[in-house]
Simulated assay, not measured.
Amino acid sequence: MAFGIDDAIAAGLKIIDKFVPDPAAKTQAEADLRASLMAWDQGQAATNTAEAQSGNWFVAGWRPWIGWVCGLALGVQFVVGPLAVWAFDMAGHPIQAPPALDDMLWELMFGMLGLGGLRTFEKIKGVARK
């Protein structure tokens, strides 16, 4: 379940409703809450943009690094591991069929293909950064 800025505003409004009886003060408190949360969100977006534009690989490269680590982990978990278990289990036994791919791998693959398709769409529309 995702927790977004709308959820934070709703939680803050419940607290304001309990502790601020004056309608004018309540309206001002709600406006201040919304403004502070939006400023926080804009600050995070500015940080993300600065990180992505950095020429330093250590700063800009953490997202690709996470992608490679997750890709390797998925490869080991869903391909290398099952094949290794199958190969070691076959030692001295009659030939067995190789293991089937886990259904979770298919779900992840289609999600990644969807993201790749969106990236291609961005490039076609000319809104991609690079």
Rank of each mutant, 00 (worst) to 15 (best):
E30I: 03
I15W: 11
T47W: 09
L33R: 03
G12Q: 05
K26D: 04
T47E: 13
E30D: 13
G43H: 01
A46S: 13
I16M: 06
A29D: 08
T27S: 12
A11D: 11
A39C: 00
A39N: 05
A10R: 08
A25T: 08
A29Y: 05
Q28M: 10
V20L: 06
A29I: 08
P21I: 04
A46H: 04
A29P: 06
A11Y: 05
T47Q: 11
Q28G: 01
I16N: 09
W40Q: 09
G43P: 02
Q42M: 13
P23N: 07
L37K: 03
R34C: 04
A39G: 07
Q44E: 11
K14H: 12
F19T: 14
D22G: 07
V20P: 05
D32S: 11
A35V: 01
A10E: 11
Q28F: 03
N48C: 05
F19C: 03
L13C: 05
R34V: 15
D17W: 06
S36K: 14
V20D: 04
A46R: 09
F19V: 15
T27R: 11
P23M: 08
A29S: 12
Q42A: 14
A31F: 02
L37V: 04
A10V: 02
L37A: 03
D22P: 06
D22N: 15
A45D: 13
A25Q: 15
D22E: 12
G12V: 01
G12D: 01
F19I: 15
P23S: 10
E30Q: 15
T27D: 15
A39R: 08
E30F: 02
P23C: 06
L13A: 08
K14W: 03
P23F: 08
A46E: 13
G43A: 07
T47S: 06
D22R: 08
A24Y: 01
A39F: 01
I16Q: 10
K14N: 13
L33A: 07
K26M: 06
P21T: 09
L37E: 02
R34H: 10
A11E: 12
T27I: 01
A25K: 15
D32E: 14
D22F: 08
A31P: 01
A31R: 12
A29L: 02
W40A: 06
A45C: 00
K14F: 08
L33P: 06
A46F: 01
